[in-house]
Amino acid sequence: MHPHCSIVPPHLLAHLAAVDDPRHAVAARAARRALVQLDPLLAGREEAFAAPVPPRTAVGRPLERRISDAGGQEILPGTLVRGEGDAATGDAATDEAYDGLGATDALFRQVYGRASIDGAGLPLAATVHYGELYDNAFWDGERMVFGDGDGDVFGRFTRSLTVISHELTHGFTQYSTNLVYEGQSGALNESLSDVFGVLVEQHHLGQTVDQASWLVGEGVFTDQVQGRALRSLAAPGTAYDDDVLGRDPQPATMSDFVITTSDNGGVHINSGIPNHAFYLTALHLGGYAWERAGRIWFDAAVGGGIQANSGFRLFADVTQEAARARFGQNSEEHEAVRQAWAKVEVTG
């Protein structure tokens, strides 16, 4: 069976393969066989069929990246220019995207045991050089898309690893909580991308909480802009303050929550509040933020407690519950999460 011929999507196969009910033994075995066949490394190994598949195991295909080039047009996907294992092309955007996808996959796969964004080894696709002087980076539901910037305010978006990891985390969220992209649930969707976006960079650079910049998009502004980055998890509202662009509008607490109809109800603005709650949790715990604070947020995201329309309050409850479940009632971790949400005024 060729992977593309499979009618059952890999994430469903992974789910089926993990079923431990004798009534579904045949289906589980068939799903395991399909998954093993998806993975060339495991193909033909009979013992792989019999091995138990615990939930959320990094089963499925190994990392597979596909970078395409839109050649300055607004057409997707563009021409494939670098596939998995191919040598560097010498084009900065292509190679930065390739490396950035690898660094993002490394955090999810090595630290949290999740194979790719869907948990079943979905190939990671990106398109670079999208549009003419296109000043944005986005996720279109299947791939990341990066513009070269207008050269006036923004340079190349792939210059910051956090932009790449932010976009890819939108894919992770699509396959986990799929938070609705509007209002508070949209701000949570944005915040998850910022949180795992900075964690990817910290993991890649081996930085502790104290060493990390906690900035999103450092280096994407041109020299003409007065600002270090687009957002700061450590100090929302301080990333830039420019004569022309104005200042970073992010709040850090509920007192400063912004009610607006623009930006899908301020999804990139009010994300400052859950962003800061994550930062405070990580600061409280110290060390490497991806180990405990990041693990709690990851557990919350995949645990099923977050609804597509969840607001900040429910998200705060689910992360506290995730901390309690993994580290124990009244553990240092549980306490750190509880205090963080109280400090940003989401809980009382």
Binding site: D135, N136, A137, F138, F154, F157, V163, H166, E167, E190, G217, L230, R231, L245, G246, P249, S262, D263, N264, V267, H268, I269
Partner: peptide
Amino acid sequence: ISRSGGFAGMTRT
């Protein structure tokens, strides 16, 4: 014309 959102979440007019 005002443009909001985008990765940067910056409003331009």
